[in-house]
Amino acid sequence: MPICWKACLEKKYSLAGWTAGILVYMAILGWYYPSLAEAGDEMQALMDLMPKDMWAMFGIDEAVDMLSPSGFLTAEAFGMMLPIFFSVFAMGIGSRAIGGEETDGTLELLATLPIARRQLYFEKFAALVILVTALGILLWLGVLFASARGGMALSVGPVAGSSVMVALLGLFFGAITLAAGAMTGRRTQTVAIGSALIVVTFLFKSLAAMIDSLSALKWLSPFYYYGQGLSLDENLLFVDTLPLVGGIIVLAIAGLIVFERRDLCT
């Protein structure tokens, strides 16, 4: 797997940077949570005043108990910040994988080596999965660290499940840019497509939660399926991962079909 290995090594500094950012963020949350919890009833009363629509704008379907560890981390991290972190990280890898190499001109030599395009594509995809999984594992460890630091006593299993869901959401958007790059050979356009889809699908989910007549829009949003499996109190159910896993597989296959058939480096 030399292509996969090279792609992973190229992103080692990027992975280290994102990991550092997430760990710092988690450390801040772990440091901040005890003072929030001490505020007790006053803080909860303030939270109760916030309308449901306000929560929806931050990616949370229902008003959460901000004083509980899981409610605090859902509101502060898993609701919006971490999905965006993971999606941007994965999109960077996906857009660079094939579209970036073709834009830079380096794909011309790589694609004329004695490897099938299918192998090239799968190795690039494997690198995306490995890097996002690595960030997911580091997130899992970071949340457990924050939990220990802030006395939250979160269980290992649900934190792992939530980390899996956020990694799957990132992979979904990474798969979009990788497949779009494989189809078009253009990096800038794929990043634009991916970024627009993050914003639009996040809005779909928020609008669906706020406006009853638009509730069907949630089915078009990967953020909705992400939210369905997200829980820091209960273990992740396999079935909740299926919509995102299925979407990732469909995107991967669609990108491969076009990549195997189209002209490269035109």
Binding site: D104, L109, P114, A116
Partner: peptide, 17 residues
């Protein structure tokens, strides 16, 4: 193509490394 390219050396006109 893959079998053929095992026995080919290629230098593109627009070389990007």
């Amino acid at each position: 193509g893959a079998k053929i390219r095992n026995r080919i050396g290629y230098l593109p006109g627009d070389l990007y490394l």
